[in-house]
Amino acid sequence: MTQSLFTPFVLNERLMLNNRILMAPLTRCMAGPGLVPTQTMADYYARRADAGLIISEATIIRADGQGYPNTPGLFTQEQIAGWRVVTDAVHEKGGKIFAQLWHTGRVAHPHFWGGDEVLAPSAVGIEGTVPRMRELAYLVPRALTVAEIATLVEDYAKAAENAIEAGFDGVEIHGANGYMIDEFLHHDTNRRTDEFGGSAENMVRFPLQVVDAVIERIGAWRTALRISPAAYFNIAPDNRDREVFDLLLARLDERELAYLHGGIFDDSVHYDYLDGRVSDYLRAHSRHTLVGVGGYSADTGASAIDEGKFDLLAIGRPFIANHDYVARVKAGQEVLAYSDEQLPVLY
């Protein structure tokens, strides 16, 4: 059933993956002081290096992008050096690893960087408190100025450059799951009336600027993108979003990318305004290599690949519970069940 997962995959003319199983980005909140990756993190990733590609935990591009405790950064030399230990460990095991670049947007909290405000596309807050730090209530953000948006684009590009300096094989721009880039793409969180909001053409402008800046800095073959056409996490759905993502995907088809990754927790959900599942929508509207994710097992993921629904399979929580996930699947062995108690554990 899973044989297709273990065939090598040519991502592009410069990157060959040993198999089609990707380790999905998994926030672990285990960075050290200064948000520097630790030796324990290097050991954790190296144990999973038999994945065709590891996508790192989401990694913040600058200090005010932090929304969770102890999430690693890629904006200081100490952080770059810490990530170099991680990437060296993965490469020594024959693996490949991309850095996922992150700004949490309105989900950020100034507690983490000693500031007094949060930045987002629009001054639209989110209810609730910071996970693991329930005493911190979310703030209503301040809308970015046009000049600040230009600076943010450069900060994404600089983080991509830092990722390559740190030894990553490429980057995945985190444009999904209700964070900064995704907030520009949904009407619920983007209520701007300038050149970055109010129409599909304007709402895709910032995400495409980030993609173009990263491509210019490190090359398209090392640049991937994750997006969430379905507003299912921290954002209210709006049928008008379909037009935005239709345009975004059309514009992305004019560019080269390493791959396109769907941002969804459960890909079995049918969204009326997308005419089906997220993976089906992406396949119908994108020519890029597609990564499927969202509740798949090795068996169901392999079947979806065989049916042409996507090209690569990203596995999340089972990789936390099974550092040897790939070997277990290949040998037909039982995969250990994930539990929330494993979240703070790196092994």
Rank of each mutant, 00 (worst) to 15 (best):
M1C: 13
T2V: 09
L5N: 01
F6L: 04
R14I: 07
R20V: 13
R20H: 01
L22Y: 11
M23I: 14
A31M: 02
P33I: 13
G34I: 11
V36N: 08
T38L: 03
T38Y: 08
Q39V: 15
Y45P: 02
A46Y: 11
R47W: 02
G52H: 10
I54L: 11
S56Q: 07
R62P: 01
G65N: 12
Q66M: 07
G67W: 09
P69N: 00
L74E: 06
F75I: 07
T76F: 00
E78C: 09
I80A: 06
W83V: 02
W83I: 06
V85M: 01
V85T: 14
T87S: 06
V90K: 08
E92S: 14
E92G: 12
G94E: 02
K96Q: 06
K96R: 10
F98H: 07
F98W: 11
Q100L: 02
W102R: 07
H111L: 04
F112I: 08
G114I: 11
L119M: 09
A123R: 03
V124Q: 08
G125L: 03
P131T: 12
M133D: 08
A137V: 02
A137N: 11
P141Q: 05
A143C: 08
A143G: 04
T145A: 04
T145K: 10
T145G: 00
V146Y: 10
A147K: 14
E148M: 04
I149C: 06
L152W: 15
Y156A: 09
A160N: 12
N162F: 14
N162K: 15
A166V: 09
H174Q: 14
E183P: 04
L185I: 03
H187A: 04
H187Q: 04
D188Q: 03
D188M: 07
T189C: 06
T189W: 05
R191N: 12
R192D: 13
T193R: 05
D194Y: 08
D194M: 02
D194T: 13
F196Y: 15
G197H: 12
S199Q: 04
I218R: 05
T223L: 00
I227P: 05
I227R: 09
A230Q: 02
A231I: 00
A231K: 04
A231V: 10
Y232G: 07
Y232M: 05
Y232S: 06
R240K: 15
V244T: 14
L249A: 02
E254G: 05
R255C: 06
R255D: 00
R255S: 07
E256N: 10
Y259Q: 00
L260A: 04
G262F: 07
G263H: 05
F265E: 12
D272C: 13
Y273C: 02
Y273L: 08
L274N: 08
V278S: 11
V278T: 15
S279E: 14
S279A: 15
S279M: 08
D280Q: 06
L282F: 14
A284K: 00
A284M: 04
H285A: 07
H285L: 10
R287Y: 13
T289C: 05
T289D: 08
L290K: 01
V291D: 05
D299T: 14
T300W: 03
K309A: 09
K309N: 08
D311F: 08
D311W: 09
D311K: 01
L313K: 05
R317T: 13
P318A: 01
I320A: 03
I320P: 05
I320H: 08
A321I: 15
Y325E: 01
V326G: 09
V329S: 00
A331D: 14
L343F: 15
V345R: 10
